[in-house]
Amino acid sequence: MANQSGNAYALALLCPVRAGAPPAGFDGQCQESYAAHLRYVLQSVRVSGDSPMARVPNTYLSRFFLLDDVFYQGSPALEEHLKSSYLVFCCNFHGELEPYLTGMWKTIESEVRLILNHCVGFSDQTVRDAAAFIAYIKKCEIKTTFYFNGSTDQPLAEQLKGLYLKQEFSKFAFENQGRSAREIQEAFGEFIKGTEPENTARPAWKPGVYDLDKVVAK
């Protein structure tokens, strides 16, 4: 199976969503289903630099969506339907699965609960710690048949440091055109001191930020 390409991991989950509606009805009215409420929750999760996924170490890209049913292709194809809705979570990250999931549990447990509590077999009682979380995820994981990595498999911090340096060094090269060797050498010394290319922690780009004025973590 091809969940991995070098150090890049392709995680895909299908988590069955509970059938029916939550029991806490209001005034006897029909309540929206678990699936509809989950979709609302997913769409309310913050995005870009404020996304909880920005706190999960080594996440390159991730997505959530609800698979309500399969599509009918029209006659003469068979018409068939899913019996559950599934929460689909797809994620590309650096490293091995268990350390990644442990990192996720440590950083965004409450957000994970908010989402997975809509799914069969997941509740505050059944999943109490990281180990139980990992066990749950493994039950929902579907194996990738073919994984195409068109990018790199570096740790995220190295990717973000590289992006920071690319942006800053292109400014440096642009601004120092035509200066004397000594001037460029001095300026470069300052540049290296300020940008610390070997230090992946900082300064670097922050994960998820979509704003040139706010992207640098000093």
Binding site: R39, L42, Q43, V45, V47, S48, S51, M53, A54, T59, Y60, L61, S62, R63, F64, F65, L66, L156, Q159, L160, L163, W205, P207, G208, V209, Y210, L212, V215
Partner: peptide
């Protein structure tokens, strides 16, 4: 359609 999409380097 995706309900929530996250990208570590949107730029």
């Amino acid at each position: 359609w995706t309900d929530n999409y996250y990208n570590a380097y949107p730029m």
